[in-house]
Computed example of a mutant assay.
Amino acid sequence: MTVEKQKIISKIIRPATCLIFYLDKGWLSIQVFFIRQARLMKREKRLFPVVSTAPEEMTSFILQFYNRKNNVLPREVLVPNGLDKQVLSDILGIPVRTPQRGQKKDLLDMAQKNARIVLEEKFRLLELDERKTTGAMQEITDALGIPAGHKIEAFDHSHIQGADLVSAMVVFTDGQPNKKLYRKYKLRTVDHADEAASTREVIRRRYTRLLKEHAALPDLILMDGGEIQLEAAKDVLENELGIATPVAAMVKNDHHKTADLLASAGDQHLHLDPKSQGFYFITTDSR
């Protein structure tokens, strides 16, 4: 920690948590500072695409963040302007404030600067890597043995301590993120971490709607999981909805990092070339 940072929080005695966000190009960058005994004890960051409005996403994040099991509440929470502090305070049972001056205001400013820097770095890397995804779609469809296409929809389930289940859908056109088409689904029929049930619900909801709207289907659907998600997605698409869109699973290695593709349960992994654009795509952009 720099001398300047230490000086900012040197007189903040009460345990506090600072949560700040920075929004740009449809992405939300969140910084969480944990202040204990006048020291910055820990810092967390989050990056994700915005589906609703930034204040709504931030409010939802804060409530889920403090709903985690065994999470200890601070004496107060510091947030930026634009959030309904009274609602947050009533739910959390602790003061939620937006400081206008002094060291706490300086702390918010520092956190927002960090949030901006993190998001700008992400965009910089995406721009530098854009050329690497140009042929990714072709390589992936060739590896799967399916016709060449342009549009991929990829799904990833998440939860906090087994609750607050959400499935995010990201969309890629010719290997590039299409953020306007991103969607977030709060699961309605699943109340615990269940990969198969979560997959069935989100696939059913997404593609039932596309069929009703006579909208174009993607050329490929990717599930960020193994055989369980793959089979659940195929079952709903083929047996319930009559959709023949190819589905593949992004499988993880022993380090829990996406490392390959799986076309069907029981099959061998495709063993994509680690130096290929297709491998780069599934291990970075589509997660």
Rank of each mutant, 00 (worst) to 15 (best):
V51R: 01
R68A: 14
A16C: 11
I203H: 05
K5L: 15
L187M: 13
L211Y: 02
L47I: 14
N114H: 05
A249W: 07
N71R: 15
V72D: 03
G226T: 00
R39M: 12
M223K: 01
D174Q: 03
S89L: 03
V236I: 13
A111W: 00
I203Q: 01
F21S: 15
R39I: 05
V50C: 09
E240S: 10
K45E: 09
R200F: 07
L23T: 11
Q268A: 15
E127N: 10
Q229L: 10
L108S: 05
Q64C: 14
H192K: 15
G26V: 07
D235L: 15
V96Y: 02
K234S: 03
G145W: 00
I91Q: 12
E213R: 06
A196D: 01
Q161F: 14
K11M: 06
R204W: 08
E127Q: 13
S29C: 04
R287M: 08
Y182D: 10
V79S: 04
R188D: 06
A265M: 08
R46E: 12
D24P: 08
K132E: 05
D260H: 12
A193N: 11
E130L: 11
F65Y: 14
H271A: 14
S158A: 15
A232N: 02
T98Y: 05
L125I: 07
V50W: 02
T283A: 13
P15L: 08
A136N: 03
K105G: 01
S198M: 15
H256K: 15
S60I: 00
G145S: 09
K113I: 02
D285E: 08
K45D: 07
K186H: 13
I13G: 00
K275S: 15
G93P: 10
R68L: 10
F281G: 02
E195S: 09
R200S: 06
F172N: 04
I94N: 01
T245Y: 08
M1K: 04
N178C: 12
E139V: 02
D191F: 14
G26L: 08
R205N: 11
K105E: 05
Y207R: 00
D260C: 03
L211R: 05
I20N: 02
A163G: 07
L107N: 00
Q277H: 07
K252R: 13
F65C: 06
L211K: 12
I13Q: 08
W27S: 02
I91Y: 01
A168R: 00
L63I: 11
K275T: 12
E240A: 07
V247D: 03
E195V: 14
T2N: 11
D142M: 09
L237K: 06
A163T: 10
Q100W: 06
A259K: 12
D260P: 14
M110E: 04
Y182S: 11
V190P: 08
N253K: 05
S286L: 14
M169P: 06
P80Y: 04
P99W: 11
V72F: 00
E44T: 03
E153N: 07
K7P: 00
T208V: 10
P99Y: 07
H255G: 11
Q176C: 06
L23D: 10
